[in-house]
Simulated scan of single mutants.
Amino acid sequence: MRVGLRSPVEIGHDGRVPEPPGVPTMKPIQFDRDETRAIVADIQDYFREELDQSIGAIPAEMLMQFFAEKMGGYFYNAGLHDAQALVRRKIDDVSDEIFGLEQPTGRR
């Protein structure tokens, strides 16, 4: 009996252990060039208006990437919960519509 030996774990190119096949994962949050510019401008405006500080475009973009990587999952999960609630309401609506299609029978 071998003690303490485990099967090798393959590490991805990003340094993370990949999820087993079939396990859904969140895609990395990526913004196109126009979205990035808009977000960077919003961050710069916030620093200027709320903190009375200036922040360059590169540090603002780095801050955006930090929040996307570290906190994006929280926003993603909130969006999933909202979507799940919407789907439940729609299923309830469809179920009600189907129930409304039932025809009276002699058994009722």
Rank of each mutant, 00 (worst) to 15 (best):
E19K: 04
E19H: 06
E19C: 04
P21V: 02
G22M: 03
G22D: 07
G22A: 09
M26G: 01
K27P: 04
P28H: 05
I29T: 12
I29Q: 07
I29P: 01
I29F: 07
Q30M: 10
F31G: 04
F31V: 12
D32G: 08
D32W: 02
R33N: 10
D34N: 10
E35F: 04
E35V: 06
V40G: 02
A41V: 01
A41N: 11
I43A: 04
D45S: 14
D45Q: 14
D45L: 09
D45F: 06
Y46N: 05
F47K: 07
R48P: 00
R48C: 00
E49A: 12
E50T: 08
E50C: 11
L51I: 01
D52Y: 08
D52Q: 14
Q53C: 10
Q53K: 13
S54L: 08
I55P: 05
G56M: 00
P59T: 03
A60P: 02
L63I: 09
M64H: 06
Q65I: 05
F66L: 10
F66V: 10
F66E: 07
F66W: 08
E69T: 08
K70H: 11
K70F: 03
K70R: 15
Y76R: 11
N77Y: 13
A78S: 08
A78P: 00
A78K: 09
L80P: 03
L80N: 09
L80Q: 14
H81T: 06
H81Y: 07
H81L: 13
A83Q: 13
A83S: 09
Q84H: 13
R88Q: 11
R88P: 03
K90Y: 07
I91Y: 04
